[in-house]
Design a protein around this nucleic acid. Structure first.
Length: 197
DNA sequence: GGCCAGGACACCA
DNA sequence: TGGTGTCATGGC
């Protein structure tokens, strides 16, 4: 059954690849920038998150120390285009602090450690693990659920059900995980009018 | 002009 | 566990 899923998933992957080409996620110059982007894009169009990141970059606040030293009001102004700017200001600060701890001790955070950080849920944690720390965690988002529903792969309400489905069906290939999730997002953007929910 | 983005969390029953 | 409200800007 795992084999069947694998065959099916890989076939769909090839189709997406052929249709959309290489995505090369995550666009960022540093590990910290990936993490910041993961917070800023929560329930937000990436274009808007990108503007906020550009503002942070221009203000030279795109490193954990500078960001932590920036007053909340100032930070809110810089990230305003990404929406939810008050929440995200708080979340950026809490994750910046945790990031410094991870850097100092010299090894990557576990999923549970990330989930303990305020403002980091399952999708954000997996995005950070996959795209910032290059570990084989499959990222599940709204598009992935629709994708699974559309192709009758899996029907569930639980994040972890989807995560296990992909991780147990696919070979633990980091590049594959990164590219597959990115392609599903592209697929979702194109098909969003085709069906609802 | 309404709808919704690469979610998370608090609160309630 | 399951349902609902809140957070907020900008593109289409």
């Amino acid at each position: 059954m795992g084999r069947k899923n694998a065959t099916r998933l890989l076939k769909l992957y090839e189709g997406l690849q052929a249709g959309f080409g290489p995505q090369n996620w995550w666009p960022a110059d540093s590990r910290f920038e990936v993490i910041v982007g993961a917070i800023l894009t929560q329930n937000t169009n990436w274009k808007n998150a990108e503007k906020a990141i550009a503002n942070l970059k221009a203000a030279k606040k795109l490193d954990a120390h500078s960001l932590l030293k920036t007053p909340d009001r100032k930070l809110e102004t810089l990230i305003r285009p990404s929406g939810f700017f008050r929440q995200k200001t708080e979340r950026l600060k809490s994750i910046s602090l945790a990031f410094l701890v991870f850097e100092n001790r010299g090894f990557a955070p576990s999923r549970d450690e990330l989930l303990e950080i305020k403002g980091v849920g399952k999708e954000t944690a997996d995005s950070i693990l996959l795209y910032a720390y290059h570990q084989p965690h499959f990222v599940i988002d709204a598009y992935t659920r629709r994708f699974c529903s559309y192709y009758s792969l899996l029907e569930s309400k639980e994040y972890d059900d989807y995560k296990k489905y992909f991780e147990s069906s696919l070979p633990p290939d980091i590049a594959l995980f990164k590219e597959y999730h990115a392609l599903i997002v592209e697929w979702g953007k194109i098909n969003k009018r085709s069906f609802s929910n």
